[in-house]
């Protein structure tokens, strides 16, 4: 109880201070509401969208669907490709340099093209999300497997263990922390991808909601949308972290927080 209080009290204080500053800045004599609405109108808009009329839910459903499908698809593809790449000399020599090059390129720039190829519906968003999550996780998977302590591999080999055994019981677990770091980056990038896709062309989704609110000069709705997205980002991140703690229990995660370079 006291531990929980000690943990949550400081950030709560910060939150109250921010809300107070926000209320002051948008109060009488402050910024006009068409630039920055106060916390209260935004809260009202959130309440309306989520509970009152419930008008946000179809958008939320759409964005979550494309985010999750794309994330899962992109991540599975990245891990499988990464494994194949890390275990194959040929792939490393012929393809890996390009993977690194593509990894450095901003994939969101491809959004318009992907929309042309895959249409304006769910498919294009899923593809964009998958593409954006794919590369950081691919690179992490490869470097995680490559980074396996060579003495552990040597040890397993000395006991006449097969290549499959070494991969499954030595390399893959050794790479797990790096793979989870990639999954952690990916979940945040996935949400960005989904929203960008919806910005470019969509008739649904939280990104669409924010985009159309801009056209209507409805700044409160924009803010409400951003808050919804932030909540999903945090929830997704926290979920992946929980799973990570479970699976990679032997690792102290701090060492593996990879700085997401030019990933999106």
């Amino acid at each position: 109880m006291r531990a929980a209080f000690a943990r949550f009290a400081p950030p709560l204080v910060t939150l109250v201070l921010i809300l107070g500053a926000w209320a002051l800045a948008t109060g009488p004599g402050g910024l006009p509401s068409y630039l920055l609405p106060g916390p209260w109108p935004v809260a009202l808009s959130l309440w309306n969208g989520l509970v009152g009329t419930g008008s946000f839910w179809p958008h939320i459903g759409f964005t979550l669907t494309s985010t999750l499908l794309g994330y899962v698809g992109g991540s599975v593809a990245a891990i499988i490709t990464g494994v194949a790449a890390a275990e194959s000399r040929l792939f490393e020599r012929f393809v890996y340099p390009y993977v690194v090059a593509v990894q450095a390129a901003p994939k969101v720039a491809l959004a318009p093209l992907i929309l042309v190829w895959f249409g304006f519906g769910l498919a294009s968003k899923v593809v964009l999300v998958a593409l954006i999550c794919f590369f950081p996780l691919l690179v992490n998977t490869i470097s995680g497997i490559r980074g396996t302590d060579p003495e552990l591999i040597e040890m397993a080999r000395s006991f006449s263990r097969s290549r499959g055994f070494v991969f499954l019981h030595v390399k893959l677990p050794a790479a797990a922390p790096a793979i989870f770091a990639g999954l952690q980056i990916g979940i945040v990038l996935a949400l960005i991808g989904a929203v960008v896709g919806e910005f470019v062309a969509s008739d649904r989704g939280v990104g669409y909601l924010i985009g159309s609110a801009t056209v209507n000069m409805s700044v409160t709705t924009m803010f409400a949308g951003v808050i919804v997205l932030a909540a999903f980002g945090m929830a997704g991140s926290a979920l992946v972290q929980r799973i990570q703690r479970r699976v990679v229990f032997w690792d102290n995660a701090e060492r593996h927080i990879v700085t997401p370079q030019e990933t999106a």
Partner: peptide
């Protein structure tokens, strides 16, 4: 590597994700 040769390494080289018993059973 051969089945009839076994080695104890200079460093422990245990799998961190396996218990002591499982490491012995590798």
């Amino acid at each position: 590597p051969r089945r009839d040769v076994g080695m104890v390494f200079q460093k422990p080289t245990l799998l961190p994700w396996r218990t002591a018993l499982d490491n012995v059973l590798l």
